[in-house]
Amino acid sequence: MRDVARLAGVATSTVSRALAQPGRVNEATRRRILAAAEQLGYVPNAAARNLRVGTSNIIMAVLPETTITYGTSQIVAEVLQTVAATLSDNGFNLLIAGRSRSRAGEQHIPDLAVSGIVRGAILIGSAELPPGGRRSPAGGGLPVVSVLEDRSAAGIPSVIADDRRAMRGAVLRLIGLGHRSFFYIAGPAGSYHEAERSGGLADALAASGLPERAAVRHGGSHTFQDGFESGVEAARAWLALESRPTAAIACWDDAAIAFLSTVRQQGAAVPGDLSVLGFDGVPVGAFCEPPLTTLRQPTAELGAKAAETLLALLDGGAPAPPLRTTLPNQLLPRASIAAAPKRRGRRTSRPP
């Protein structure tokens, strides 16, 4: 703080007021102090501040930009619900922060992280903490946990579901029903869940001695928020194939639901001509016609475990939590899958 004061040409007490009570310092002086702090990479000592004003009981959940832009998905909402409940049971409150398209619009996140206002952060899905220049959350020593995506390689404790293993098991079930050709509706290219789930499909094919070409891949350019649109486009692509795979597998339920509805509108029988498998376990899948077979993510368990992991990091006397905690998905077998039809690839209708 003395270095900041020297660079800004003010007293140390003025720096303290500018950072803690900005209304007591004129705007020009405050800006000069903030510029000096940024230049020096000054991070307020959260531990010392908490000794003066009391320890914070606020935990920050950071949502990915797409969640804020397009609306909160059911999966994220369910995870957040149990994160909040678990923290509340342990005397903590949850603050939800969202990434923005503009640097200025998300500056509040590193500010909260380094100021001592929050005790820790939980990254939801693909969310990242903004770098914040030299005033970074990492520089402030903020405890961080990731849920839904694995960041253990970067040293961040992560709580995830076993997507790859679950997809492998579900595809092996389809192979056991006689299916030998698959139509895969891919998730967004480069996304963690797409990599895990398509990897599970590849593992099942390899374990069964089937070639990679047994799965026709479609999509990859849409976001998870574009699921219904992606499913409709995938259905049109499947209908246009001369030799149609007997099982369709979607990286996420929204795409599977739209795919199933569209092919049925064009005369395909599900599961008579085609079996359909989704992933995520969103509740609406149970009300499709026929009800969608899917893999349910353990959202409640993921949220609770992520909160417990962060609480363990905050408890200096507790054993260090594992870098990776993996929870099982649950197969929900419903009427959208059945044995492969005897005559594979036969057209049932003209493409739209």
Rank of each mutant, 00 (worst) to 15 (best):
Q297W: 03
Q297N: 13
T299N: 14
T299S: 14
T299Y: 04
T299D: 01
A300M: 07
A300F: 08
A300L: 13
E301Q: 13
E301P: 03
L302I: 01
L302E: 02
L302H: 08
L302P: 07
G303S: 10
G303E: 02
A304C: 04
A304G: 13
K305V: 00
A306R: 09
A307M: 06
A307F: 02
A307K: 12
E308T: 05
E308L: 13
T309C: 04
L310T: 05
L310M: 08
L310S: 07
L310A: 06
L311M: 14
L311V: 06
A312T: 14
A312C: 07
A312F: 02
L313Y: 03
L313M: 14
L313T: 04
L313G: 03
L313S: 04
L313F: 04
L314F: 06
L314A: 06
L314W: 10
L314Y: 10
D315S: 13
G316Q: 10
G316T: 07
G316S: 09
G317Q: 11
A318G: 12
A318S: 15
A318V: 10
P319F: 04
P319S: 11
P319Q: 09
P319L: 09
P319E: 12
A320I: 04
P321L: 05
P322D: 13
L323M: 14
R324K: 15
R324I: 04
R324G: 07
T326N: 10
T326M: 12
L327C: 11
L327A: 14
L327Y: 02
L327H: 12
L327V: 05
P328Y: 12
P328R: 14
P328K: 14
